[in-house]
């Protein structure tokens, strides 16, 4: 089985297609939102091209629209995007030996929930060519969707727009369900994470916790319990594919 750079890159491109399609619809909504908050199409697309994150960008729009302070902006971005630190940390263990500092700097720009999930789902280590391919189309999709949303507003019928919103969750299911069927540890971790996120979302006492923090808390609790109850052998680490 030969895995040349070209083949790796194309493999990444292929795996990025569903992410790009999902991003196209999500960023479409962001584009509409940005323009309705008084931003130009250019500013909206610039935000998407430099940030590549949904929750952080929406929060950023809120700060801009309310003419908030720069510190407020920085703290909001830090808190909401803190989960990427966990993902980067996890991914740092999966990169193959050929990563240079420069390729690490480049790849870290493209770590999103979905790109991370797909990269983690690969068995064994990942190459920089695979990561470059995996990040390319979602980045284009994210910027293009923002442009279309900002420029054309409501070209899609409401129902179609709504239905596309679920595409990304379909991908998530396709990643964690097979893994949970194979390994009881993963199943337990997913069940704990889901239970915790429902509790934090619906129990009124926890109302003060933002959605970004809910993800962080659930992740730490579920992954730590999983590590205590079902430790993984060294050779097995890094996703089962």
């Amino acid at each position: 089985m030969s895995t040349g750079p070209r083949r790796e890159f194309l493999g990444g491109i292929k795996d990025g297609i569903p992410i790009a399609l999902g991003y196209l619809s999500v960023s479409f909504g962001f584009g509409i939102m940005a323009v309705s908050n008084g931003l130009s199409i250019f500013a909206a697309v610039l935000i998407s091209m430099t940030n590549l994150t949904s929750a952080g960008q929406v929060a950023g729009l809120t700060v801009i629209a309310s003419n908030g302070g720069m510190i407020e902006m920085a703290v909001a971005q830090f808190v909401i995007n803190l989960r990427y630190s966990l993902m980067s940390l996890s991914l740092s263990q999966k990169l193959d030996g050929k990563f240079t500092p420069l390729s690490r700097l480049a790849v870290s720009f493209g770590i999103t929930d979905e790109i991370f999930a797909v990269a983690s789902g690969r068995s064994g280590e990942v190459s920089k060519h695979y990561m470059a391919g995996l990040i390319s189309l979602p980045w284009v999709g994210w910027a293009l969707g923002t442009f279309l949303g900002a420029a054309a507003g409501e070209i899609l019928p409401e129902k179609l727009k709504a239905a596309l919103g679920i595409a990304i969750y379909g991908m998530f299911v396709a990643i964690f369900v097979p893994a949970a069927r194979k390994a009881v540890g993963v199943l337990v971790v997913v069940v704990i994470a889901v239970t915790a996120s429902c509790c934090l979302k619906y129990i009124p006492v926890f109302d003060f916790i933002s959605d970004g923090f809910i993800i962080i808390i659930c992740t730490v609790i579920a992954a730590a319990l999983g590590a205590l109850l079902f430790p993984v052998r060294q050779e097995k680490g890094g996703g089962e594919g």
């Binding site: 993902m87 999930a117 992954a223």
Partner: peptide, 8 residues
């Protein structure tokens, strides 16, 4: 190893 599944 468990982080991605917990996040998802």
């Amino acid at each position: 190893y468990y982080v991605p599944y917990a996040v998802l």
